[in-house]
């Protein structure tokens, strides 16, 4: 474990917590893409499928974190699609998730390190995570604005994988560890946030709201 990966995981936890708090406190999921949250839940379940396959003795933080990610993302989906369904902005959350899931699944079958079920699921989860934020970014572009709290959520969510890139550089240099698939997908994922990062840093940090087109 290195500082970059630690802060990456903390940033990821913060993002999940910020979103849960926003929905719970405001009792509304306005401005939040339910599809993105569904895709994240699918990512966690397919990536941590080993938790379900053999008994999980909660003997280390890794297992606990995986269970937190899975339960928090499923709970977030429950809040969006059931509890606060009335506030779900389905009209603007209109990006076709199938256009993300099918290519990720296809690519996972073509480009992977080992053609076995667990590895294919892991690879699918990595590819899907890289594009899972697109429905959320699409929704913001359709509504033309993002609540400040949602901007903080996106900043934390984007920073998590950006910090993981630093972690991969660190591990390549000090542990000569390379996980090419995760690195390529992580770079693509972080690039998708660049536009938002620019808006966040030039606007939200100064107390302004993000309004599109910028």
């Amino acid at each position: 474990m290195n500082i970059f990966r630690l802060f990456g995981d903390l940033s990821h936890l913060a993002a999940i917590a910020i979103l849960l708090l926003k929905i719970w406190k405001t009792r509304s999921c306005a401005g939040v893409s339910g599809k993105t949250q569904l895709l994240f839940a699918v990512c966690f379940i397919t990536r941590y499928i080993d938790l379900f396959l053999h008994f999980v003795s909660l003997y280390n933080t890794e297992k606990v974190m995986k269970l937190i990610y899975i339960s928090a993302s499923v709970f977030t989906c429950y809040l969006i699609f059931f509890k606060f369904k009335a506030t779900y902005d389905g009209n603007h959350d209109s990006m076709r998730a199938e256009f993300l899931i099918v290519p990720a699944a296809g690519l996972a079958c073509l480009i992977n390190t080992k053609f076995d079920a667990i590895e294919i699921l892991w690879t699918f989860s990595i590819y899907l995570e890289a594009v899972a934020i697109l429905p959320q970014l699409f929704l913001i572009s359709k509504t033309g604005e993002a609540e400040t709290i949602t901007s903080h959520y996106l900043f934390a969510q984007g920073s998590y994988r950006a910090l993981y890139i630093l972690n991969w550089i660190y591990r390549y240099h000090y542990e000569s560890h390379v996980d090419t698939i995760a690195i390529v997908a992580g770079v693509v994922q972080t690039i998708l946030y660049c536009d938002f990062f620019y808006l966040y840093i030039t606007k939200v940090v100064k107390g302004q709201k993000i309004v599109l087109p910028a």
Partner: peptide, 10 residues
């Protein structure tokens, strides 16, 4: 704690 080749990150 992961056998070599396993993915040891979240």
């Amino acid at each position: 704690s992961f056998p070599k080749g396993e993915h040891d990150e979240l």
